[in-house]
């Protein structure tokens, strides 16, 4: 078993065996989470601070539960982006927190790279809970775990990621992870919502949803932000739903046993048909949420082990 990182800032620096290490451990935590006594002590005595500079309910709750189940002292700091006028307060806040000796810092920030910047300045392990359009590593890991459990493997699958790729950190982390694990990744969406030179990432790009879903094992939908719908990137919500919204008809082009995923929160009737999202035979959206807790437990456990090892090396009491 190997995982040699001080922080979890993105999928990009991870080796495929490290991804497998996280997922294997997460599988065990998934079992624990289904048992009656949901308690382990991997983070006993450690302090975990969740710093969210961007509103989040689901991810923050998931990290909080994950930390508590592993015995950490968890503190949530709601740092609304509006109260942080200048980035220097980002550094200042980090330095202030650092002085309180946290062990795990979970950070979400609206600017790409902000979590990397912060990780440079603190002595603890930092987990990226989403930075701008850059990465959202635990989301990609929980998606990977869900796929692996549903499909029995995480390689040689055809996976279609659909929607607003350009503004999505979920899409970035996912396409990097799925590519590293040797899957066939397709990106489906209007060209205005595709990042530049995305074809250089070893993916296939489609602007026709039916062609993109043809024979897919996994259909991964992304959330379309409301502010993108006003004619700047796409003409209208209804035209988007008509061309790129997932419904039973479009899904019929995928494999019969294809699963439907969504990172949430969903815009029913915009990117996904409401009935389809609730169809327990196709949709694994609830399982994604469940795996989110397990994956975050695994990631924090592994980072805490490295943290304790580094401190022992330095002669500090772990």
């Amino acid at each position: 078993m190997s995982f040699r990182h001080r922080h979890l800032l993105g999928i990009e620096p991870l080796h495929p065996t490290e991804i497998t290490t996280i997922l294997d451990l997460a599988d065990r935590y998934a079992d624990l989470n289904r048992s009656a006594l949901k308690r382990a002590n991997a983070l006993e005595g450690l302090t975990q601070i969740n710093m969210f500079f961007e509103a989040s309910t689901r991810t923050q709750a998931s990290f909080e539960i994950a930390g508590k189940r592993l015995g950490a002292d968890v503190m949530n700091m709601a740092m609304q982006a509006s109260s942080i006028k200048k980035g220097e307060t980002l550094i200042d806040t980090a330095m202030t927190l650092n002085a309180m000796h946290p062990d795990l810092l979970v950070v979400r920030h609206p600017s790409s790279g902000a979590v990397n910047l912060l990780a440079d300045k603190v002595n603890c392990a930092v987990l990226n809970a989403g930075d701008g359009r850059h990465e959202h590593p635990t989301q990609a890991l929980l998606d990977a775990l869900t796929i692996r459990r549903e499909k029995g493997r995480l390689h040689r699958l055809t996976i279609a990621i659909c929607g607003d790729i350009a503004h999505s950190r979920v899409a970035r982390s996912n396409l990097i992870l799925l590519g590293k694990m040797e899957n066939r990744v397709r990106l489906v969406g209007p060209p205005t919502l595709m990042p530049s030179q995305i074809d250089q990432f070893g993916v296939e790009v489609f602007d026709d949803m039916r062609a993109g879903l043809e024979g897919a094992d996994v259909v991964m939908m992304l959330r379309l932000q409301r502010e993108r719908m006003d004619g700047g990137f796409i003409p209208s919500e209804r035209e988007y739903y008509h061309r790129f919204g997932l419904d039973a008809e479009k899904l019929s082009y995928a494999k019969d046993d294809a699963i439907v995923m969504h990172p949430g929160p969903m815009n029913r009737g915009v990117e996904i048909d409401g009935t389809l999202a609730d169809d327990i035979n196709r949709s694994v959206i609830q399982e994604q949420v469940e795996m989110g807790v397990a994956v975050r437990m695994a990631a924090m456990d592994l980072l805490a082990r490295n943290l304790r090892a580094a401190r022992t090396d330095k002669g500090v009491m772990a």
């Binding site: 790409s112 790279g113 701008g132 850059h134 970035r172 990042p195 530049s196 030179q197």
Partner: peptide
């Protein structure tokens, strides 16, 4: 704009 900009998730210009 380009592969690097996409990888880093930064707003880009051609």
């Amino acid at each position: 704009s380009g592969k690097f900009a996409t990888l880093r998730g930064l707003p880009a210009v051609s």
